[in-house]
């Protein structure tokens, strides 16, 4: 499991960090974010790339899990 901690960052930073991890090709990836906006943007990026996406509350924010 690869973890990308994007908490405290505002868009588009979480999307860019997630994309960097996706480009490396190691799955699954969990992206930690702390706003609904970041969660939705990471989710949509992954959907566009044809990945499986699951988002769930985690701590004060969300955990978005990406897999092939």
């Amino acid at each position: 499991m690869v973890t990308v901690d994007a908490r405290g960052l505002s868009c588009p930073q979480p999307v860019m960090l997630a994309k960097q991890a996706i480009d490396k090709g190691e799955f699954p990836i969990e992206v930690l974010v702390d706003t609904v906006t970041s969660r939705e943007n990471v989710r949509r990026l992954a959907q566009r790339l044809g990945l499986k996406v699951q988002a769930e509350p985690s701590g004060d924010g969300f955990k978005v899990t990406l897999d092939k």
């Binding site: 505002s10 868009c11 588009p12 999307v15 860019m16 609904v36 906006t37 939705e40 943007n41 566009r48």
Partner: peptide, 11 residues
Amino acid sequence: DLWLFPGGTCN
């Protein structure tokens, strides 16, 4: 295409 939207887009 690269999904580089700012937070304001979502608002």
